[in-house]
Design a protein around this nucleic acid. Structure first.
Length: 274
DNA sequence: CCTGAAACCTGTCTGC
DNA sequence: TGCAGACAGGTTTCAG
């Protein structure tokens, strides 16, 4: 489900309340429950997990790249939702759903639920989140991410734009949907090589990345298929999963190719190679 | 350094 | 109707 806008939407809801659930801030943990062992990125016995989490209070909820970060009194919980993960808050009295993988019960009778149909998602419990986040590239919406920094990064590589945008060490938070949408908005072919962009093209790419992500966040992300619930940015896709439909800008049918094992959608007229 | 393939998983949809 | 195959928001690891 989740790329940067979806994780940001979930983080905001867990911090401020909303999305059909209350805020997590100030809640006190009574007990964690592991429903599928593989969910723990660093394996731990139930006793060890209980020992480390019981009694801790949730102080903040944030995001870095596609990681959702829950800051505790001591240490942090990091969640990565990968392809199909989701987080929700509900009364602890309800029976767990079939795809629930990890629960955290609170003293007030609520619980946080991590559900994940495809079992790709993971949770970390760490005293030092930096160890896990250190190799991530810049946050595209951070003021420190400028056309100049993007220019430098692009020149440092000889790689196709599409796989490069998906590389979390190059740029943090982009995923398959928003990479395709940003490249279309910037009018850049997904196979263009990173070092070949003119300053004007770099500026267009920088601007497109930020605009697409900001608009998606404003719309609370994209809802696709059976996985994500919430936003409606999917109604504003121009190329993603629109193979054969006319490009909104020029009418040419959208083409789908595979790049780096990922479906890649673009307009062959607006996004010229070379 | 870069690319491609496979692996980790389950669910849905399409076409024969 | 049934079933094989393609495809899905992500990342890691390995071969070449």
């Amino acid at each position: 489900m989740p790329e940067l806008p979806e994780v940001e939407t979930i983080a905001r809801a867990l911090r401020n309340g909303g999305r059909e659930g209350p805020s997590l801030l100030g809640k006190t943990i009574t007990s964690p429950v592991v429903l599928w062992q593989g969910v723990l990125a660093t394996p731990m016995t139930p006793g060890e997990l209980q020992q480390r989490l019981a009694g801790l209070i949730i102080r903040d909820v944030g995001r870095r790249a596609k990681f959702l970060i829950i800051t505790l009194d001591r240490g942090s919980l990091l969640f990565h939702l990968r392809m199909s993960g989701d987080l929700r808050v509900e009364p602890a009295s309800a029976p767990p759903a079939p795809h629930d993988r990890f629960l955290i019960n609170f003293t007030d009778g609520d619980r946080l639920v991590f559900d994940d149909a495809r079992k790709f998602g993971r949770v970390w419990l760490t005293e030092n989140p930096q160890e896990i986040l250190v190799h991530l590239g810049p946050e595209p919406l951070d003021p420190a991410f400028t056309p100049e920094t993007l220019q430098h990064q692009l020149k440092a590589h000889h790689r196709q734009l599409k796989p490069l945008l998906l590389d979390q060490a190059f740029l943090a938070g982009m995923g398959n949907i928003y990479a395709d949408e940003a490249l279309h908005q910037a009018r850049l072919h997904p196979l263009r090589l990173s070092h070949s962009l003119s300053p004007q093209e770099v500026e267009a790419l920088w601007s497109a990345i930020r605009q697409v992500l900001q608009e998606a966040i404003a719309r609370q992300g994209s809802s696709i298929d059976w996985v994500y619930r919430g936003g409606d940015f999917q109604e504003h896709f121009k190329v993603y999963q629109r193979t054969g439909e006319p490009c909104p800008d020029c009418g040419t049918p959208i083409v789908r190719i595979v790049v780096g094992q990922r479906g890649t959608h673009f307009c062959p007229t607006c996004q010229k190679p070379i």
